[in-house]
């Protein structure tokens, strides 16, 4: 019995490692290529492992060219800002739908659902008109408001179930102690739903970190742009400079991965669903 279990464990590991190799090879190839001088012609043999000596000029060039270091900072500022706005709005929205009764609640909720399904490509034009009217073009505040607005439907939908699954008795005892609605939200619901909020927050952060179209559309000054726009500049009209582009890509994705690894324990271990129920 025990032996067969051990064997099963090994088999699982082998399968997972095989899958992991498939999953990671493209990334490895990208990292290795970013250390090569690739201009015009692509290498004859695929680059999987880095070739020594490493060609670090790509990184030096990327970091100095096109305001890249500046963009890095911009991206960080606006992604964190977006994250804060996103969480605040989504949590209070979801709380409204989970714990308040008011006429039209389900109707509004269904409108949320519907808007999530209609392709949003042409919305950009109207959104632009609105922000332009508010004089918020070329201003991070405009982008943050826009992100705040577009996250409402999906996140309300996502959080509502979690919030509703928090036992009402907990809240009622807090109310008896004289707590306000706001205090209940911050001291009871948010802590209990941390895993769910964490999951969605990481997603939101990634989305904002890599947002290309909104930034390109609403931010008009070169100095205020973000990494994804800079990355796009390496795809030229006539050629793509793979070496440079991959060096830039590595710089772009490393922070995201690092942040994910740091915070993954917060939500992955506890498990998304039960976190709320157990509380």
């Amino acid at each position: 019995m025990k032996k067969s279990r051990a064997a099963a464990q090994i088999v699982i590991h082998v399968i997972l490692i095989f899958l992991a190799v498939i999953c990671l090879t493209p990334f490895l190839s990208m990292i290795s290529s970013s250390f090569m001088d690739i201009r015009g012609v692509l290498p004859d043999v695929p680059v999987i492992f880095p070739k020594f000596p490493l060609f670090v000029e790509n990184y030096a060039k990327v970091w100095t060219a096109n305001n890249f270091s500046r963009y890095f900072l911009n991206t960080l500022v606006i992604s964190v800002g977006g994250l804060v706005v996103n969480v605040m709005i989504s949590v209070s929205m979801a709380y409204s739908f989970a714990r308040f009764k008011f006429p039209g609640r389900e109707a509004i909720f269904n409108v949320f659902l519907l808007t999530m399904m209609v392709p949003a490509q042409l919305a950009l034009i109207s959104q632009y008109t609105v922000l332009n009217g508010l004089k918020l073009i070329d201003n991070y505040a405009g982008v943050l408001l826009l992100w705040g607005g577009t996250c409402v439907a999906g996140n309300t939908f996502f959080y509502r179930g979690f919030f509703e699954s928090v036992p009402k008795e907990l809240e009622e005892s807090m109310f008896l102690d004289g707590a306000s609605r706001f205090q209940v939200l911050t001291h009871c619901i948010i802590p209990l739903c941390k895993p769910a909020i964490g999951t969605s927050a990481i997603f939101a952060f990634n989305g904002y970190w890599g947002d290309l179209f909104n930034i390109l559309t609403f931010i008009k000054t070169e100095e205020k742009r973000t990494l994804s726009v800079a990355l796009q500049l390496f795809r030229g009209q006539h050629t793509t400079e793979y070496g440079l582009m991959f060096a830039a890509s590595v710089i772009v994705i490393i922070p995201v991965i690092v942040i994910f690894i740091i915070f993954q324990k917060q939500f992955m271990r506890q498990g998304l669903m039960e976190g709320a129920v157990k509380g």
Partner: peptide, 17 residues
């Protein structure tokens, strides 16, 4: 990318109910 994020955003909804 926003457009896809729209789709991805809806991807995270309503797990329990």
């Amino acid at each position: 990318m926003t457009m896809y994020d729209g789709a991805q955003a809806c991807v995270k909804n309503q797990a329990t109910e």
